[in-house]
Design a protein around this nucleic acid. Structure first.
Lengths: 218, 218
DNA sequence: TTATATTTTTAGGCAAAGCTAAAAAGATGT
DNA sequence: ACATCTTTTTAGCTTTGCCTAAAAATATAA
């Protein structure tokens, strides 16, 4: 069994590997976890004994297959709970992280399976980040800002960058939510504004909007 | 802030007070928590310092208003999550305790409020136990076995006593679930069997069934 | 009342997970 | 190559929550 602290370390190391690849340094882990390098050394040795990672003194760590799977599973749970909180309990996108941070440590495989089903096996969380599948595979997706999309191209809304209540309400009003397909019909280079199509409606949006909406391109 | 262990102690003491009243002995707590009396003494002293209970050496403990409220809140969360697991994720009544035992410690008042709303503010959990309200008030209900109900009287199903999959399937088949109104039409003293009405159907049930179904009388 | 039994507390230890301060290893610049 | 700087590790201490064994308080029984 893994403790809560161990799971959090695995998660952090997983994210660092995902972004930087290769061996992850003690310092990098300490920074990302806002803790001291000496604490990291302690924990990393414990995780190495549990075969969750390979640790070489002064050389950094690398997750084993087992460690990688476990970390992905915790991230899967985190993101599924975020979907639950937003879709079912009507939380805003920016209110859910802390709660999911707690919920991700609940131990019950059956619960995860049923929660996933209940939510319709979503592929993305409310921030547009992909949800690892049952086997721990995390898709490496191209998450772009809407503002980066070319004229006549389209993307699927997968989340928001900064999410103030005002912005979220605006999106609600415009019927934009996760999974919504957005087509860029026109783009003004002077101010970065756009004309987009959402469903059967087409309308104008400012650069500020376009720079705060994440989309995934096909 | 309360730790997980502290919350579990408060919960246990709350239950003991609810059932036995008055001062609760160190031994009683140790037994109900499956731990050693010396551990209880340690913890009880800590809880006394946090003003959660009044502790007199060799005399036992008594919850303060603050301790009582906190305990009731944890129990509220536990039972709300049980309702969620059964009603929304289709778990069986007897599979949810362990998971709820973990979920009850998630810290977020907003989450509890929204979960309660999402579930339609239920009054009972799937075992027929009342759910404390937002103010920490736990109704002292008369939970009887169906077998104790008199002829021509009725009760509302609030849970099961022993819940094997077979029994639960039987109840499904007979369309009996939480909130179902059951009327006793006839009672056979020889074998304790009954004829009951559920909705528009009426049928025969054995004593074994009647002794495993909890109902609340009006 | 005095002896015995039970309950409760105290004392001392252990594991987890963190910290600070000091030592050791590795990297860098001249 | 050597001195210096950075990174990492080690050593030793703290808190939480548990344990065992021994001591103290209370309850019971002759």
């Amino acid at each position: 069994m893994m403790t809560l602290a161990e799971e959090n370390y695995l998660k952090a190391i997983f994210h660092l590997e995902f972004e930087n690849g290769g061996e992850i340094s003690t310092n990098a882990i300490a920074e990302s976890m806002e803790t001291k390098p000496s604490s990291v050394t302690d924990m990393v040795q414990k995780l190495a004994e549990k075969n969750m990672l390979i640790y070489k003194r002064y050389k950094g760590v690398q997750l084993t297959e087992e460690g990688r799977k476990l970390a992905a599973y915790v991230i899967r749970k985190h993101r599924l709970w975020e979907v639950f909180l937003v879709e079912k309990l009507n939380f805003h996108w920016d209110e859910v992280h802390e709660i999911a941070e707690q919920l991700e440590h609940i131990q019950s495989d059956e619960l995860v399976t049923r929660l996933d089903q209940f939510l319709g096996s979503p592929d993305f969380d409310p921030h547009g980040d992909p949800i690892p599948d049952e086997h721990g595979v995390l898709k490496r997706t191209e998450k772009k800002l809407l503002s980066e999309i070319e004229k006549n191209h389209q993307g699927v809304c997968v989340g928001v960058k900064e999410s103030s209540p005002e912005f979220l309400q605006y999106l609600d009003k415009k019927k934009i939510s996760i999974g919504t397909k957005i087509t860029v019909l026109g783009k003004e280079f002077f101010d970065g504004s756009m004309v987009i199509r959402v469903g059967n409606n087409q309308f104008f949006i400012s650069q500020k909007i376009a720079e705060n909406l994440f989309v995934q391109t096909v």
